[in-house]
Amino acid sequence: MRISVAADSRDGVAERVVAELRRRGHEVITHGALDANVLALSLRLTSDVVLDEILDAWFAGRPSDDPSDLANISHLEQI
């Protein structure tokens, strides 16, 4: 999977996120802080253990099949 990561610094958790995503086999594209984020983390307060838990949960998630979510996606495709 190709994943974009944006951070305002390249140290601590930011580098660890990129390394962990690559270790899991994903293609990572890095961006500066002004680009859009999907997963936002506290660089100051996220430990390695918590980061692993967050990423495990994020990758375990599945797209919603809720009708209102699907309607929103359809609307975005139309515009």
Rank of each mutant, 00 (worst) to 15 (best):
E53W: 00
L55M: 08
A19G: 07
I73S: 09
E20C: 00
L41I: 11
S64D: 06
D66K: 12
H26I: 07
D35Y: 01
V38Y: 12
D48Q: 04
A57V: 06
A36R: 13
M1C: 02
E20M: 02
R10Y: 05
R44C: 03
E20W: 01
M1W: 06
L39N: 12
V49G: 03
H26F: 11
A14K: 08
V38N: 04
S9D: 15
R23T: 13
S9Y: 10
M1E: 04
R23G: 09
A36N: 11
S9A: 10
V18T: 06
R10S: 06
L76D: 14
G25E: 13
D52S: 09
L76Q: 07
A40K: 12
S42D: 15
L21H: 10
R62P: 08
P63Y: 00
L39C: 12
D56R: 10
V17K: 05
L34K: 10
V28N: 02
A33Y: 13
P67D: 07
V49M: 01
N72K: 05
L39F: 09
L34V: 05
P67K: 06
R23E: 03
S68R: 11
S9K: 08
E15T: 03
D11Q: 13
A33K: 02
R23S: 12
V28L: 10
T30G: 03
N72Q: 09
R16M: 05
R10V: 02
A40F: 14
V50Q: 15
E27P: 00
V38P: 00
T46N: 07
L45Q: 15
V38D: 05
A57Q: 05
V50E: 12
A36H: 05
S68E: 11
R62D: 11
V13N: 10
L39E: 07
A33V: 07
V49Q: 10
D69V: 15
H75F: 01
S4A: 14
R23W: 02
R22F: 01
D65A: 11
S74P: 00
S42K: 05
G12D: 08
A36P: 04
S64L: 08
D65H: 15
L55G: 04
R23Y: 02
M1R: 08
V38H: 12
P63N: 01
E27F: 00
D48A: 15
R16Q: 14
L76C: 09
S68T: 08
P63E: 04
A57H: 06
R16C: 00
H75M: 07
S74F: 01
A19R: 14
V38M: 06
I29F: 06
S68N: 06
I73D: 11
R44Y: 13
A7E: 06
R62F: 05
